[in-house]
Design a protein around this nucleic acid. Sequence first.
DNA 1: GTTGACAACTTGTCTAAACAAGTATATATT
DNA 2: AATATATACTTGTTTAGACAAGTTGTCAAC
Lengths: 242, 242
Amino acid sequence: MINKSALVYDDLMQKIDAEVYQLGTYLPSENQLCDLYGISRETGRKALATLAENGYIQKIRGKGSLVIEHRQYEFPVSGIVSYKELAQKLHIATENVVYGYDPEATLPIAAFASLGVDLTEEPVTAIKRVRVIDDEPDIIDKDYILKSVIPDVPRKAAEDSLYAYFEDELGLEIGYATKEITMEPANAEDRAELNLDPGAYMAVVRSVTSLTDARAFQFTESRHRADKFRFRDFARRQRKPM
Amino acid sequence: MINKSALVYDDLMQKIDAEVYQLGTYLPSENQLCDLYGISRETGRKALATLAENGYIQKIRGKGSLVIEHRQYEFPVSGIVSYKELAQKLHIATENVVYGYDPEATLPIAAFASLGVDLTEEPVTAIKRVRVIDDEPDIIDKDYILKSVIPDVPRKAAEDSLYAYFEDELGLEIGYATKEITMEPANAEDRAELNLDPGAYMAVVRSVTSLTDARAFQFTESRHRADKFRFRDFARRQRKPM
DNA sequence: GTTGACAACTTGTCTAAACAAGTATATATT
DNA sequence: AATATATACTTGTTTAGACAAGTTGTCAAC
């Protein structure tokens, strides 16, 4: 049983997606939500705050919660969602080819230095995968999972879904990730796996993922064909300090 | 006078930046914050929630609020911050050259179609700027500001800071933005303004910015030299629905 | 020494209430 | 008709309290 505010959030979110609450209209007022769901006002406000944070609504004082244009999920990179979840949500046919698996590798720390990683040579399970979309290989994912946190990552988990393995099989709770997007020339491996011409460019997404107890455990380098890459972001204006 | 939770947020944030609270240590507990600032627990929790949202801390139940690695601001794109604010915060010497100014232009809707823009031909003020960093032109910004929302944008505002003009001069409140990052070949204008070779690639950031009353008013196409582009993002794992 | 129960901490969730402040509408006044 | 006013809505902020649940250390029992 999860909490009430999360239930209200899920319900409102689904109704916005299903256009029960349409773009440009207002959600029920906070007091109406209290009656509708049998909750206190603060509980409803928590759900609304999360909707606002995720770009579903804009709260306007004196008026209400306005449903706004929402384009959160975009293939292939958006927030911290597993590839498999994203493909399912968007109904995209994808294939996942594991072309490298080494349970006794070492973390290439240099690649993640700009993300603030200051580890020494850590034992990791190294996994290389190619993501095939519409029969065309578009993305190379190189994952390094710390053995000190997750001693064993079976090849089967890599072929299916790493996140499902971590969360459903091992019961770990994934907390947050820092990612960095850069543009780099394709290397020999990129060209070979993705059938690219010399001179091609890649969108490279490097990320460090941590559990809810703040232990970093997964380091990923995701290399995308430049012409297929698209990243979407929703951000709110920060109030100026002081 | 802003609110108490924002004051506590600013104070904790500054102390984290100043390493009064160091990486890997815990902030004062919620009850201690109540005594320290003379606030109620929920008010302190609100400040902590915002810190967590912005990647400063990780809350761990039963333990406390752990200060984590924080790398929010990165040149040149991060969240929704004005170019000038970012340059000042990072102490980077930049120059800003306005090379195009047309107060009677029309919004190029095709460029922003993928962001959900469904306007017809709207009158805008069109501004073209080159951002010069370390004596090297790196970025082209093309801004289109709706005349229906902001009838007049003086050239002076473009040379200084558009955001400062909107917020400080006109008293408008900027609410949120949706942005999209793609990788595209450099066009003739890119090559001319930034002195690039044929075959060069660009990181293109297109964004739609809205006021707190949800009126979209600014459309920006920001074109970056590929080799100088870097985007950093912090994201939390969403709890699975249902 | 090991184990288990307990107490004292921590954060998580929820409630009920009060007041401030922005918006919109109806109404009375001019 | 235009304007001002009252009032009934809306969201924003803060408080005080209660209970749940995870973490840690102490201490007694075995």
